[in-house]
Amino acid sequence: MTAQIIEKEHIGDYKIIPAEVDNTATLYDKLWAAQRLGNEFKSKTTIVFQTEDGPKRIETTVWSLTEQYIQIKNGVLIPLKSIIKVDF
Score class of each variant (00 low, 15 high):
residue 69 Y to W: 11
residue 14 Y to Q: 00
residue 24 T to I: 06
residue 79 P to A: 00
residue 32 W to N: 15
residue 1 M to S: 03
residue 62 V to F: 11
residue 3 A to V: 01
residue 71 Q to N: 06
residue 73 K to N: 09
residue 43 S to D: 11
residue 11 I to G: 02
residue 39 N to S: 13
residue 36 R to Y: 14
residue 62 V to P: 03
residue 76 V to Y: 05
residue 24 T to D: 06
residue 35 Q to F: 01
residue 18 P to M: 11
residue 53 D to L: 13
residue 50 Q to Y: 06
residue 45 T to W: 00
residue 59 E to F: 14
residue 63 W to F: 06
residue 14 Y to F: 07
residue 46 T to M: 09
residue 84 I to N: 10
residue 68 Q to A: 04
residue 48 V to G: 04
residue 85 K to S: 10
residue 13 D to W: 03
residue 65 L to G: 02
residue 5 I to Q: 03
residue 60 T to C: 14
residue 79 P to M: 00
residue 18 P to F: 07
residue 48 V to S: 06
residue 58 I to V: 15
residue 64 S to C: 08
residue 42 K to R: 08
residue 1 M to W: 00
residue 19 A to W: 03
residue 61 T to C: 06
residue 83 I to L: 04
residue 42 K to P: 00
residue 88 F to L: 07
residue 22 D to A: 05
residue 85 K to C: 06
residue 66 T to M: 03
residue 24 T to S: 08
residue 53 D to P: 01
residue 12 G to P: 02
residue 36 R to D: 13
residue 72 I to N: 03
residue 4 Q to T: 02
residue 26 T to Y: 09
residue 67 E to P: 08
residue 85 K to P: 02
residue 4 Q to Y: 01
residue 41 F to E: 09
residue 6 I to W: 02
residue 24 T to H: 04
residue 79 P to E: 00
residue 39 N to T: 08
residue 38 G to L: 08
residue 13 D to R: 07
residue 49 F to S: 07
residue 39 N to V: 10
residue 13 D to A: 04
residue 52 E to N: 10
residue 17 I to C: 00
residue 79 P to C: 00
residue 3 A to I: 00
residue 21 V to N: 11
residue 44 K to P: 00
residue 61 T to G: 07
residue 65 L to A: 05
residue 41 F to L: 14
residue 46 T to W: 05
residue 48 V to L: 04
residue 23 N to P: 12
residue 37 L to M: 14
residue 32 W to H: 13
residue 32 W to M: 15
residue 63 W to K: 12
residue 13 D to C: 03
residue 38 G to R: 10
residue 55 P to T: 00
residue 13 D to F: 07
residue 41 F to K: 13
residue 88 F to E: 09
residue 20 E to Q: 13
residue 12 G to T: 01
residue 43 S to I: 15
residue 25 A to V: 13
residue 34 A to V: 12
residue 25 A to Q: 15
residue 77 L to K: 08
residue 33 A to D: 13
residue 53 D to H: 10
residue 28 Y to L: 15
residue 25 A to I: 12
residue 58 I to F: 14
residue 64 S to P: 12
residue 78 I to H: 03
residue 52 E to V: 05
residue 54 G to I: 12
residue 71 Q to H: 09
residue 22 D to L: 09
residue 58 I to H: 12
residue 18 P to Y: 07
residue 50 Q to M: 14
residue 20 E to Y: 06
residue 87 D to Q: 13
residue 55 P to S: 06
residue 12 G to S: 08
residue 34 A to R: 08
residue 28 Y to F: 15
residue 13 D to L: 09
residue 26 T to S: 15
residue 47 I to V: 15
residue 79 P to N: 01
residue 50 Q to A: 12
residue 38 G to E: 05
residue 11 I to E: 00
residue 54 G to H: 04
residue 41 F to Q: 11
residue 38 G to D: 05
